[in-house]
Amino acid sequence: MTAPLLSVRDLTVRFRTDEGLITTVDNVSFDIASGEVLGLVGESGSGKSVTAKSLMKLNPGNTVYGPDSRITLNLEDGPVDVLSLKSAKDLNVVRGGAISMIFQEPMASFAPAITIGDQMVEQLLLHSSLNKKQARELSIEMLDRVGISDAGKRIDQYAFEFSGGMRQRAMIAMALSTKPKLLIADEPTTALDVTIQAQVIDLMKDLVDEFGMAILFITHDLGVIAQTADRVAVMYLGRVMETGSVREVIRTPAHPYTQGLLNALPKLEKLDEPLTPVPGDIPSPLERPEGCVFHTRCPKMIPGTCDSLWPDAVAVSGSHTAACVAVEPDMEAAS
């Protein structure tokens, strides 16, 4: 078996704060194969963005990674142990080189006083062997590719002259121009209107087909995941609750949290059914529950078990796993 493009093992991330160590990501493991779209779903505080930033070591200075945490990026020149990289020069192989990232708020991701073109050219000069003229030509080509009309003129404009949808397209063009192996998209459509969101999702699907890179797609919107991802990992309070193919997880969710999320979603096809909220509130990271992190809100909570023991992930079927004691393991899949 060939090694996956990215392998994350037992990733634990803590932040040193005045209130003590706060755990935001707790023993998270997953793989992403080349050309695969992995959806990372979770609500606020689930640690999905911190997980993504760890892949490029972009977390702030007060971050403490767990001693057993491993992030391995399998590139053509051999595997890279991301967490062991120290200097900015070494990290450049990963940051903007093998991995690019697009963010939720495209206005905040572009420098306001530098033209879009200069920003695109600058990163190409850093990460490729192109000269300035070639870099500019490639940038115009990429802007054109993501559907920005009149790209030759637009490239000399500033971010404020672009509309929201155009900014996000330009962000995608910039992220893809260095031909990354992995694209991290952190809520890329959340700030956009539905009609623009639909355009951007279509564009991203086309680009995956064309460039064949892998995508880690982070979102809180299960509909967006259903439309884009091959596989899904559902996170809650820093833990992966359930993983599987997008069909398995959305059609036959095994974990009570995933089931609750899907039930809480207003659906146009089921206007007569009342909305069922997940009871209670998301606990603050300072008061992480003992045992299963979801037990304070779980309808299937078993006293004495769920509030003291973290359940192992059990195989529901094939690659579909859920970390819950109430889940019946599939013996065939487990053997």
Binding site: M166, V194, T195, A198, Q199, Q227, R247, I250, L268
Partner: peptide, 25 residues
């Protein structure tokens, strides 16, 4: 109609059926 069809469907097999609006407001 366009707004309704732009809502991402929860059905993974129902991809790309949306009637997409061109351009922006």
């Amino acid at each position: 109609k366009a707004l309704l069809s732009a809502i991402p469907s929860l059905d993974p097999d129902d991809r790309g059926r949306a009637q997409k609006l061109e351009g922006e407001i």
